[in-house]
Design a protein around this nucleic acid. Structure first.
Length: 548
RNA sequence: GCGCCUGUAGCUCAGUGGAUAGAGUACAAGUUUCCGGAACUUGGGGUCGGAGGUUCGAAUCCUCUCAGGCGCGCCA
């Protein structure tokens, strides 16, 4: 689109002037006086002081400008202040951009960055020892949306839930239920909460099983009856539930341990098997296989199982595996990345950390703990607010922000959720098109296109141009998020789009515009706005209502 | 003690080297013969936790420091 064209022309000019090929940052200034696009490239170049050339930023900017020549799509290009280059696009060129949106329709916003490579996003992955919580909802919304964005960027994306369906916490689950039924001694570390009692009742025929076997049954049950439905309720469909237990069944755990030994990164000491994670920057080596003396029995740690898991997944040819973790797992990052590197997949794992969701009740913070039974489930949230509000809420925050959540206020606040502001804009767009007799999505060929001579020049109102400028940014936004993973930018983009549309709506009549041509052009603008907003909402997993 | 995250308007948060630091919300005052007022307009409100430093330029990078969160197991 326009931005790429301008970048290309700038690069050409710099090449002619024999400047080194540095990254050109083309920003879209908030301040209209600074043009439609702006770059600080001259300030950057003057800093390089390449060779014995030493020019002021203003001089460099002027030179670049003179080498650009007359670009037909610009109405003005100028050097301002310390050496900024500001570009002003001709309004008719800007409105001509709408043609591309109309042509692409539901595909508008997609890009080819991924070139068909495979990426896996692993998220939620909560232990199957209880219902999903608020924090899981946050991770779910972020992971699912990131997967959508990657998919729109030309990657083949897999959504994975790693199920820790064996090990201590599952044995503990079995014990907890046995204890609730009075068949085992109650212990401090047991899970509490109503669902444990329900499980004891539901599985009363199975209480003669040992804790581990019962735990396996319960974990499988919770996965199917609690976790999968809750994920679906918030709009998440996983491609794969990867079972930790299956790693044992397929002997992948021993294989991973053997491989690490072969490569010289695993060694035995004090009866345990260790991974030399200090070679990868960890503060100490980590245990892969416990010693009989240490925990009373020799068994693989969670860490070794997870290594086997990553080795198996990456062995399928993924370009990357992106894991979304709670901040409480931060200390685990170095050793896992180290193990992945040791197995020959260095740099293939990216981790997004989300900070904790703090829970407040009656103004007092409640520590969320599955063991203590103090937490808010995702289902409880979804009873208070609908799926769209919940997803939008979670996606409004950057992952590193610490969210304070007050369920008492969630319902009341849900009316103020910006999601309704955004959805209302979409409903307004739909309504106008409906009254004009348009089909919901039309193609450029089937109807007069704003790129057509005559129509292109119709749109000149500041509110129209501001809206167009925002609409055409979606592809760059999506491509950027595919690289920096900052999915919350989408909610801000959607809110801004709604804002610009509401303003346009207030100041520009569509159906009874002054002329037929203007009406036609404005209808096209409404249609493109609807396409763009609809596509954005679809990436967010939020519905785009025709009416509210 | 060490490591990571956070500290920006009354409140909730954007903004990771650029121009006069933004948005929502709250508060105040306005806007409907006409496409949906769940909207729009205007206004007040900031020592960007603090102190130094680097730079033509710092909320952003570096050092120190204060406050909060999380982690530091042969748990997961």
């Amino acid at each position: 689109m326009l931005k790429q064209q301008l970048l290309k022309d700038l690069r050409k000019a710099m090449e002619v002037m024999d400047y080194p090929a540095t990254d050109i940052v083309l920003s879209t200034p908030e301040n209209k006086a600074h043009g439609d696009y702006s770059t600080n490239i001259a300030l950057q170049l003057s800093k390089l002081k390449s060779g014995n050339r030493k020019h002021s930023p203003q001089e460099i900017a002027k030179q670049i400008l003179s080498h650009l020549g007359d670009l037909s799509y610009l109405s003005k290009a100028e050097v301002v202040g310390p050496g900024f280059l500001n570009f002003f696009i001709k309004p008719e060129v800007l409105s001509g951009q709408l043609a591309e949106i109309l042509e692409k329709g539901e595909d508008f916003g997609k890009n080819e960055l991924g070139k068909g490579e495979k990426i896996q996003v692993e998220f939620i992955s909560a232990n199957p020892t209880g219902p999903l919580t608020l924090a899981n909802g946050r991770g779910g919304a972020i992971g699912d949306t990131l997967a959508n964005v990657l998919s729109w960027s030309g990657y083949k994306v897999g959504r994975e839930y790693y199920v820790n369906d064996t090990g201590n916490q599952v044995r503990n689950l079995g014990e907890s239920v046995l204890a609730a039924a009075g068949k085992a001694e109650a212990k401090e570390e047991h899970y509490r909460g109503e669902y444990i009692k329900d499980l004891a009742e539901k599985f009363k025929d199975k209480l003669d099983l040992d804790p581990q076997s019962l735990g396996h049954l319960l974990a499988d049950y919770l996965l199917d009856s609690e976790i999968k439905p809750a994920a679906l309720r918030i709009g998440i469909k996983f491609d794969e539930f990867y079972s930790e237990r299956s790693l044992y069944e397929r002997n992948l755990i021993e294989k991973a341990a053997e491989l690490l030994k072969e490569k010289g990164f695993a060694y035995e000491n004090e009866g345990a098997l260790w991974f030399a994670s200090t070679k990868f920057g960890d503060e100490k080596d980590r245990v892969l296989m416990t010693s009989e003396g240490g925990r009373g029995r020799a068994e693989p740690t969670y860490f070794l199982a997870d290594i086997a898991h990553h080795f198996d997944v990456l062995g399928r040819g993924y370009l990357k595996k992106i894991n979304i973790w709670g901040a409480d797992h931060h200390g685990y990052e170095t050793r896992l990345k180290g193990a992945v590197a040791a197995l020959g997949f260095e740099g293939k794992v990216d981790i997004i950390f989300m900070q904790m969701v703090k829970l407040f009740r009656g103004g007092v913070e409640v520590k969320m703990s599955k063991r203590a039974g103090t937490y808010v489930t995702l289902d409880e949230l979804l009873e208070a607010v609908d799926k769209d509000a919940a997803r939008f809420f979670f996606l409004m925050y950057s992952p590193e922000s610490h969210i304070d959540f007050n369920l008492d206020l969630a319902k009341e606040q849900s009316n103020k959720n910006p999601v309704f502001y955004v959805q209302y804009a979409h409903a307004r767009m739909s309504n106008i098109l409906k009254k004009a007799g348009e089909k919901p999505i039309d193609s450029c060929k089937a109807r007069p296109c704003p790129a057509r001579p005559g129509l292109a020049g119709q749109l000149s109102h500041p509110a129209e141009l501001a809206l167009i400028k925002h609409l055409v940014q979606l592809p760059d936004l999506v491509e950027g998020i595919a690289q920096d993973y900052q999915v919350h930018k989408l909610t801000f983009y959607a809110t801004k789009l709604a804002d610009l549309f509401h303003k346009f709506y207030e100041s520009c009549r569509v159906l009874n515009a002054e002329t037929e041509g203007l009406k036609e052009a404005r209808l096209a603008l409404v249609l493109t706005a609807k396409i763009t907003l609809g596509n954005t909402l679809s990436l967010l997993g939020v519905s785009a209502p025709e009416r509210m």
